[in-house]
């Protein structure tokens, strides 16, 4: 089977160390050995709770945070090794859409200029043709082209997120990283943006790395899904397998914790996790989930399980398997 992978992430680690005046520095293991790959034109989802390292993974892929070790390859080019001007020019290939459409657009600039800026910075296309390109992008994301003259505050949240998508598309990137792009939006607007993302992918063949805590959204949008817990991927599979046949106890607990519209009155059957995730500073010696796991055994507390292949492109790290 030959699937052309656009993005390959290999054993990525991002550690933050915090210096203490009279003690050893504290190391936060935000991302601790994450590997995954995304086929061209597909959508890869990372889900997890706050503090699981999903956003830091996204930032590391974009080179917006220092990588401690590991490699990130985009289309065969090792972007984790680029520096300076090389890195700046390579950024044309990977763009980002942020969570908060209210703070990710410069309030003092016209939205047309905001969308045009990547083209100016990367020197893409003829200068005279860029304004026309901006209007085309506006149409593509479902905004009227005459709106380019307005300022961000004149737009609703959903429209701003459309501007954010237009800006990300301006440099014709191969990969767009979306960090919770719909979680600040109302559900009706969320549906509009999710449909737009899928149409854009069909039109342009762009690849998405999609970060979210909302399992319903991930199930709807993503072709392949990874579940993160405390800086590591605990399970990863295609969307059908992961949601139909979750193997890791954390994935199972996460899925069962989501309130469902069709399950009115049947909530008693579900088992809920107790407690909160441990701190990413003092990591447990064994499995990171052992402290909250309903099925933990002795070995779970002493030895970390390895991520192993348990089916076709289905990986999970658990001693039970």
């Amino acid at each position: 089977m030959s699937i052309e992978n656009l993005l390959e992430v290999n054993d990525l680690k991002v550690h933050f160390s915090k210096k203490k005046m009279f003690a050893d520095p504290v190391v936060v293991h935000a991302v601790d050995g994450v590997s995954f790959s995304i086929p061209k034109g597909k959508t890869f989802g990372i889900v997890g709770e706050s503090g699981s390292g999903k956003t830091t993974t996204a930032l590391a892929v974009l080179r917006l945070v220092g990588i401690t070790s590991g490699t990130v390859e985009l289309g065969g080019q090792e972007i984790s090794a680029l520096e300076g001007e090389d890195l700046r020019l390579a950024r044309r290939q990977f763009q980002m859409v942020f969570q908060d459409p209210y703070s990710s657009l410069d309030p003092r600039r016209r939205v047309g200029d905001i969308v045009r800026e990547p083209m100016d910075l990367m020197d893409i296309g003829e200068e005279d043709a860029r304004d026309e390109k901006v209007r085309e992008l506006f149409v593509k994301v479902g905004l009227r082209p005459e709106l380019t003259e307005l300022f961000p505050h004149q737009f609703s949240g959903g429209q701003r997120q459309r501007v954010g998508l237009a800006r990300a598309l301006a440099s014709e990137p191969e990969l767009i990283v979306c960090d919770e792009p719909v979680s600040a939006l109302d559900v009706a607007v969320q549906a509009q943006i999710l449909n737009l993302m899928r149409r854009l992918q069909e039109d342009t063949g762009v690849t998405f790395l999609f970060i979210s805590h909302d399992l319903g959204v991930v199930q709807h949008l993503c072709d392949h899904v990874a579940v993160m817990y405390l800086g590591q991927i605990v399970e990863q599979a295609d969307r059908i397998t992961l949601f139909k046949n979750p193997k890791h106890p954390y994935t199972q607990a996460l899925l069962s914790a989501v309130p469902r519209v069709d399950s009115h009155g049947s909530h008693t059957e579900r088992q809920h996790l107790q407690g909160d995730p441990p701190s990413p500073i003092n990591l447990p010696k064994g499995c990171r989930f052992a402290g909250r796991c309903p099925q933990a055994m002795a070995i779970c507390h002493s030895e970390p399980p390895a991520l192993q292949e348990i089916g076709d492109r289905h990986l999970a790290s658990c001693h039970l398997l």
Binding site: V187, Q190, H220, F243, K244, D262
Partner: peptide, 9 residues
């Protein structure tokens, strides 16, 4: 309009 989580996608 909400993508509901399904057990059998």
């Amino acid at each position: 309009c909400v993508p509901h989580l399904e057990e059998n996608p």
